[in-house]
């Protein structure tokens, strides 16, 4: 499984325009909807917010992965956003979040969903990947960075 095959160019937001947590999620969801895989946007948003209510998906070192499984989407859809100035996403380490992967999967795709989450976490552990992603300014550049990291 390769992340570069899963992320579509139209689902990349750089830079993220909003600064408030829920609005950032909505902005990323809108990008995800550009793929045509979001069947019911309101239901998808609710699934993401329900998951956030269990605990923030803001992780360490500036990464946030808002995610949910819901039949409001068709298959697996990922959107990606970069916030160069950082956003308070209530991250586990108390720091700002800079790189966002929003991930939604239909209920039947548990295995693919789990593996996609693991893939994102694994890539993010590469120092070069983190640095280059935070400096990226176009979707094309972001796809190229992901491809390079996956080689």
């Amino acid at each position: 499984m390769k992340l570069s095959n899963l992320i579509k160019r139209e689902a990349i937001v750089v830079p993220i325009q909003n600064t408030e947590k829920q609005l950032v999620i909505e902005e990323l969801l809108e990008a995800a909807a550009a793929t045509g895989q979001v069947i019911d946007r309101a239901k998808a948003l609710q699934a993401l917010l329900d998951r956030e209510s269990l605990g923030s998906t803001g992780l360490e070192k500036g990464l946030a992965i808002p995610h949910a499984r819901t039949n409001a989407v068709d298959g697996l859809v990922i959107s990606l956003g970069v916030a160069p100035d950082g956003i308070d996403f209530q991250a586990a380490d108390g720091g700002l979040s800079y790189l966002f992967f929003l991930l939604l999967a239909s209920d039947a795709l548990t295995s693919t969903y789990v593996q996609a989450l693991a893939l994102i976490a694994r890539l993010y552990q590469q120092d070069d990947f983190r640095r280059e992603m935070l400096n990226a300014t176009t979707p094309q550049e972001i796809i190229a960075i992901i491809r390079k990291a996956e080689e």
Binding site: L54, G55, L59, A92, A118, A121
Partner: peptide
């Protein structure tokens, strides 16, 4: 094991 790793990395909460 992968599910446990994701929980340890705080990507999942326990209920997930």
């Amino acid at each position: 094991e992968l599910l446990k790793q994701l929980e340890r990395a705080r990507i999942f909460v326990k209920i997930e």
